[in-house]
Design a protein around this nucleic acid. Structure first.
Lengths: 171, 171
DNA sequence: AGATAAAAGTTTTATTATAAAACTAAATGT
DNA sequence: ACATTTAGTTTTATAATAAAACTTTTATCT
């Protein structure tokens, strides 16, 4: 569990996200939710996750507002777990992971599942990193600069990074 | 650690990916590699990771061909860890995660770092799920169908999912 | 209405992974 | 050649996860 004790915002930018959704099962639970699974027992049987762990994960995902406990119907005490907008916006992450796996683990013609554009009934596009103008960006065409949430410390870190990348025929 | 004992390809499609890069530190190591960190000591000091864990993660990332051990120079026995193409193609995942965190954890005007289009010197676009035609897709405009790597079992699972999604005012 | 079962968790115990720190061997710079 | 990095091991302590049995509340059936 990655919790760097220094609170450098530079590091927080991904590691803090991973604290929330990086724990083994979390993304799988979120994926099941996308696929219409909402109840404790269903998550459990679909994933084969230990029930105490499922309890802990659902709790955390609710606390972080990725899932929401809603009563199963008007005034019921039993409830189900629904994705919030915050949770739904993890779709690109999930699809990017899946597409990477399709390409590099299963192979282009052995995808277990295909994501389809429902309206046009054809596969969705590959997720890509694009410039504001819309063109594809390759890793070396991307660089990183301090944002409004940066600190002197993180600025130093980024400068160091630039020096590193300039010096080698790198990345 | 998510290793569902049933080998349903439907489940494997993300969980198998997570077995490779889902372990706490892995993505952080990969991110450091993108930022020009390549040596054991540097990974260790940047991340504050325990050295035995770093050893294990680097080993696994090499075994899975995300990183590659290359001699530091011609014929040297000491080496460094470089991203392979397979590793580099995780960029969209990393950026999607970061952008999600910027939006939902740090807030739109408090991003620790900004990814820039180097050539045009402006922030990159937000990563989105798009149709083959290029338009944005919202979660409910996406559906899932069995791919060439599916099995009867996974097909059943997907049908079940469709039933579920049709029946409720869902997701 | 009452019995039966299912749903949604707890609790307990065992196993496994992670962290921290000290240690070691090889490779490099001076 | 010698001191210092570098890149790891090893050991021990701590924390997370898994499996299984147990509890309690809510549905379902007759």
């Amino acid at each position: 569990m990655p919790i760097p004790e220094n609170h450098d915002p530079f590091k927080r930018s991904i590691s803090h996200v991973l604290e929330i959704i990086g724990e083994g099962w979390s993304l799988l639970i979120i994926r099941e939710a996308f696929f219409g699974v909402h109840r404790f027992e269903e998550f459990q049987s679909q994933l084969g996750i230990a029930r105490n762990i499922l309890t802990a994960r659902l709790k955390k995902l609710c606390e972080t507002q990725i899932l929401e406990r809603v009563p199963i119907k008007e005034g019921a005490k039993r409830h189900e777990y629904m994705l919030t907008s915050k949770g739904k916006e993890l779709m690109p992450v999930l699809i990017a992971l899946t597409q990477w796996g399709d390409r590099w683990i299963f192979g282009e013609n052995a995808e277990p599942v295909i994501f389809m554009d429902r309206e046009h009934n054809e596969p969705i596009a590959k997720i890509k990193v694009r410039s504001a103008r819309g063109g594809d960006l390759r890793p070396r065409e991307i660089m990183v600069v301090p944002g409004p949430g940066s600190t002197p410390e993180s600025k130093k870190r980024i400068e160091e990074m630039h020096r590193r990348l300039e010096s080698g025929v790198d990345a």
